[in-house]
């Protein structure tokens, strides 16, 4: 079932891809192959391969429980928030928060997770800043 669904998703995405490729502006100075041929081919091969997967699906994978999915979704949310915070809030604070939360999700012990977060954040900052010389900013401008 999963493979059939996967095949269907691939076909829908490939069809969308082919449609998006068909919107490519055509250049006045076009070459014999053109901008669209390769994307069409790729989309076409993907659809064929997806059909093959749908016709001969593999055994069902072990999907994690709904609870696990929720935890993975939360991890994605943490990472997205981290991505947005990195620029405005400097390195140390967002990194400590994100690393701590990820650590908590792998092993739910609050204190250990907090220590991991702070330790990683400060330790990595030191490595990147002083050993590799990257221009990281510890805290937002004007805090100290």
């Amino acid at each position: 079932m999963s493979d059939r669904l996967f095949g269907l998703v691939v076909i829908i995405v490939a069809a969308g891809y082919i449609f998006a490729a068909s919107l490519t502006e055509v250049s006045f100075l076009s070459d014999p192959v053109g901008s669209k041929t390769f994307p069409y081919l790729i989309g076409g091969v993907a659809i064929l391969a997806a059909l093959a997967v749908m016709l001969r699906p593999d055994a069902e994978p072990d999907w994690p429980s709904a609870g696990t999915f929720a935890r993975i979704a939360l991890a994605v949310a943490v990472l997205v928030a981290y991505a947005y915070m990195l620029r405005p809030f400097g390195f140390i604070i967002p990194t400590a928060l994100a690393a701590g939360m990820l650590s908590y999700q792998i092993r739910p012990r609050a204190i250990a997770a907090m220590l991991t977060g702070v330790g990683l954040s400060v330790g990595l900052f030191a490595i990147f800043k002083f050993a590799l010389g990257l221009g990281l900013v510890a805290f937002p401008k004007g805090w100290f």
């Binding site: 192959v33 901008s35 390769f38 994307p39 790729i42």
Partner: peptide
């Protein structure tokens, strides 16, 4: 094959070197 198509498809994104026009 699907995996290769995913990668190839992603590689097409961006400026088309042969026309200078953005794709996808």
């Amino acid at each position: 094959a699907i995996a290769a198509c995913i990668g190839l498809g992603i590689s097409m994104i961006g400026l088309d070197n042969n026309t200078g026009i953005a794709r996808l």
